[in-house]
């Protein structure tokens, strides 16, 4: 694919066709699992039947079970599933907030995908987190320092990445606040004083501060009014269009996923039960659970 066709494609309206898949992935995750609890001989078998995500023998919670995924340049990967299906735990493992029990993650922008980033040093993981990834948490209290100004919140990732120039960080912060449409007169205000929609937009600005090639968005629109939701979704689409950022977007709302994602993964009880092009999944869902999800949307 030439650069010119890529540009045209990025600006075309949906539906997006799926030529990216052939490009080397920016992010490749294989066999990721996260348990809360020690596990036992029964549930260490990957085929073991659990009660939803809980081992009936030892009570261990298998929050994420053997999940694999790829994200390609400029692509939005959607992850949909009901509450408790393991979406947030998965995202927090990818962002190094939680240590996965098992798994392999390759990050092209770090080392060309040479090493499993779950096994590199803490310092290297910080490097990836601060310069290659951006994260927007479901709960803004996890993503923001509620008592620090919005500008400081945005600067934090730049400081972490080694920037020591105040003017540079203030300029970047103002530019990002404008991009996420927060009035500059509020730049000194702490997010504590903001509405939910504004807090999510500050989180997005913060996540973007170092121009990361990969963005994780966990339920960004959940709990927001419909009109506010629409504006945040627009913002996300504009980031892909203008910046070419690759994203993993998590939602329990298939409507949001349908609007944003090129490809979609459906999770249930910690496992991936279906994956494919979003349009395919919408038109021809295979798994009974996915069918239920899709029909309830119609």
């Amino acid at each position: 694919m030439t650069d010119a066709s890529a540009t045209v494609q990025a600006t075309l309206p949906r539906p997006v066709t799926h030529t990216y898949v052939d490009d080397a992935p920016v992010l490749k995750v294989t066999g990721l699992s996260k348990r809360f609890g020690a596990g036992c001989s029964y549930c260490s078998d990957p085929e073991a039947k659990l009660e939803r995500n809980i081992c009936p023998v030892c009570g261990t919670v298998h929050a994420v079970r053997n999940v694999s995924l790829e994200v390609h340049p400029g692509e939005i990967l959607g992850i949909v599933g009901e509450s408790g299906s393991g979406k947030s735990t998965l995202m927090q493992c990818l962002y190094f907030d939680q240590d996965p029990t098992e798994g392999d993650m390759r990050v092209a922008a770090f080392d060309g995908g040479a090493e499993n980033c779950f096994l590199v040093s803490r310092q290297q993981q910080r490097y990836i987190r601060d310069r290659i990834f951006g994260m927007v948490y479901q709960n803004p209290y996890l993503g923001l320092r509620m008592n620090f100004s919005s500008l400081s919140n945005i600067a934090e990732k730049q400081i972490a990445a080694g920037v020591r120039n105040v003017h540079q960080m203030v300029d970047r912060g103002e530019e990002l606040l404008e991009r996420v449409k927060i009035p500059l007169r509020r730049k000194q205000d702490p997010p504590r004083a903001f509405s939910g929609g504004m807090q999510q937009r500050v989180q997005i600005a913060k996540a973007l501060s170092n121009e990361p090639p990969v963005l994780f968005l966990d339920e960004v629109t959940t709990g927001l009014d419909l009109s506010v939701q629409a504006r945040v979704l627009d913002l996300i689409l504009s980031l892909r269009r203008d910046l070419g950022v690759s994203m993993v977007v998590v939602s329990h709302d298939l409507g949001v996923i349908r609007l944003l994602a090129d490809r979609t993964i459906v999770m249930l009880d910690g496992q991936v039960i279906e994956h494919g092009l979003t349009d395919q999944i919408m038109q021809d869902p295979q798994h009974a659970y996915t069918q239920e999800l899709v029909y309830s949307l119609l």
């Binding site: 310092q123 620090f148 400081s152 600067a155 934090e156 400081i159 105040v166």
Partner: peptide, 18 residues
């Protein structure tokens, strides 16, 4: 332990902002 001092600089940055 990790010599991760973003927080110390962030406080100074916040003072400058305010």
């Amino acid at each position: 332990a990790e010599a991760e001092y973003t927080g110390a600089y962030l406080e100074l940055f916040e003072q400058i902002v305010r």
